[in-house]
Nucleic acid binder design. Structure first.
Lengths: 358, 358
DNA sequence: AGTAGCGTGGCAAGCGGTTGCCGTCAGTTG
DNA sequence: CAACTGACGGCAACCGCTTGCCACGCTACT
């Protein structure tokens, strides 16, 4: 069986992979039968199919996804676009998406746009024809560019509301209300919001939500920023508090909160004694900083999972119910970075720790 | 130009994408010319090419990577296999790989094997024919399975030495020597190694390296484990020290070190006063824990980058210089988790802190 | 016995590009 | 002015697989 005519076949380097024709010849059937044996079991006699699989296995045959995708359009690939793969915020989303994709027999094409819309547009353009759907998690594209892409393939946007495009967002208003209430209960009457990227839909959403929630609770709110949505950005933000340290701050996200906390602590400020800090997203790192960060937990994994499922379910239908964005619930996770207020006014002189070792 | 016969064309849902034939017709040239205008500029008259691009842009044409990959084998896709996308250790590798791939005009197919070799084998089998090369970063496959895959596509393995397959590893021996020397300088004469997964090539390597380095310095070494290579695994490891706290421990990696540190601190143990902790890899989180973790910095980003470059450069050649694995340099990053020894013996009774606030 | 119906397998026309080979035509050259 | 050359476009044969349609042989009915 294994000895045909000396060398099997080879291209400019490694051996050429067997095709359905090779299998067909070896099994004494037509190529179409081989194709069906793999793609449409049941359409072919069980015994025949078995023999074909047998032969195929011996030859080391495997279907070429490219070739089978060409005529059918079924490539079994999905694209997930993120602005920075190394961002821990995406880790769980990627994870959830990956899982959902794998469950459905799809592979994920990860596209890192490196925070550049040029790169993003280019990559998307090149990969769009090859995938069956797209999840945009953190995109820099314009609304119209997104709608354009959504016209070609099932597409779901995360954490952004684009008209006519299905999207999945977190319940930011509720999250911010939880944060405000939590701080209010601890006696904080003044909040400061440390904002993220200026152009970010989420940032605008969170800021407005916090402002409204605080207003309803009779708290005052300030806003500083914008800052990069990273730990470095948070460190940077600490400088904004050089003159006046608020009693409570709510950060755009966990990274900013962590960076802020670290920089503050390095300057001798105690958290939560001198200032309470609240983050958003509940990334893994919130549990390993000291003190652990109080934050609004977002079901990131579920978001990624749902996004892929949504994309998959809208294959076939042009643009399904792309009405209101699907909103995922959030909840407050209380940890060590928030505590009862100990100073009366936010304008109190900055605490300069001196008696602390190391 | 844009008005042909009512509706352009459409399949079972969304409008059908234009093909080179559509462009050819609209531009009044043959399809082959359109193909060449995109794939082989210069082969076609500049003016003609320009006109074709013009028409193509108007029609919204883009080459279908599947279709062009079929006859040529050039799919512009690379696969990166990791055992867990959410693992921060991979974050930088992915990042580096992504960058290198993008630079070369390739897209990365991210494959998360979820720590299962079944999943890994399956995914790899399905995607291998569609990609031009593979990087195995953290694989559960057997050596023979890896060699098998390497036979079909250019492939590079990370942090594992597989005969006849090009690989890129870190300089574990040197890293462990740095760790041992650092601790020796701080007066530590007894080291404990907290090991990672049993079957891990890296774990074996690190353990032996540490043992040898310590022996050369006249230090004694113990080993506990195995533990999962995660923060949770590190927490678990802390239990091993319930009876006897060593003065210095070197962990399999940063996650384990962090988990260990956290659990120890929760139990009232002070780091580095009571025990010095050293990690490995220098993942981002080492900078945000308290105290910051002393660790062996590995050029993870570079590793991912190099891996992709290696894969790309070995296209064409069957199996290039797959001799000794390429070894990347590491260095010691001293942070707050290590300090001069304060206890004389490792067997000293466990320190139970009581006078500490919070 | 005649025939409708079903289970199976084969044929061949694509899917959307790529590319070897050839014809054409204008520009060179002797 | 004829022969030659090179640039440029077109033709058509794939790449490997899918699938509509057809043919064939059997079983099951009338």
């Amino acid at each position: 069986m294994a000895e045909q005519d000396g060398t099997p076949t080879d291209a400019e380097g490694r051996p050429k992979a067997p095709t359905i024709y090779d299998v067909a010849k070896a099994a004494g059937v037509a190529a179409s039968t081989v194709s069906r044996a793999f793609a449409r079991p049941g359409r072919v006699n069980a015994a025949t199919a078995e023999r074909i699989r047998q032969v195929a296995a011996e030859l080391g045959y495997r279907v070429n996804p490219l070739a089978s995708g060409l005529p059918t359009g079924r490539t079994s690939m999905l694209a997930l676009v993120v602005s920075d793969v190394a961002n821990p915020f995406y880790a769980e989303i990627i994870r959830g998406a990956e899982t959902a994709a794998a469950e459905a027999g799809y592979v994920l094409l990860l596209i890192d746009t490196q925070e550049s819309d040029r790169v993003e547009r280019g990559s998307l353009e090149r990969t769009l024809p090859a995938v069956e759907g797209v999840v945009l998690a953190g995109t820099r594209l314009s609304d119209s560019a997104i709608r354009m892409a959504a016209k070609q393939r099932p597409l779901v946007v995360l954490n952004r509301d684009v008209a006519d495009v299905p999207s999945i967002v977190l319940d930011n208003p509720y999250g911010m209300r939880l944060a405000a209430e939590h701080l209010a209960q601890l006696g904080h009457r003044d909040l400061t919001y440390v904002s993220g990227p200026e152009a970010s839909w989420v940032d605008g959403m969170r800021w407005r939500s916090l402002r409204d929630a605080a207003a309803a609770l009779g708290q005052r709110v300030h806003r500083v920023g914008p800052f990069a949505p990273t730990v470095a950005g948070g460190r940077e933000a600490a400088k904004a508090f050089a003159d006046e340290l608020p009693t409570a701050v709510v950060a755009y996200n966990d990274q900013v909160a962590i960076g802020l906390m670290l920089a503050l602590q390095a300057g001798g400020v105690r958290v939560p004694e001198d200032v309470s800090v609240v983050g958003f997203d509940n990334i893994f790192a919130t549990q390993i900083v000291t003190p652990a960060l109080t934050t609004i937990a977002a079901p990131l994994r579920a978001q990624g999972h749902n996004a892929v499922e949504a994309v998959l379910s809208s294959r076939g239908t042009p643009s399904p119910r792309a009405g209101r964005p699907m909103t995922l619930p959030v909840k407050l996770v209380t940890r060590g970075s928030t505590a009862r207020i100990r100073r009366s006014t936010p304008g109190a002189p900055r605490v300069r720790m001196t008696g602390r070792s190391t």
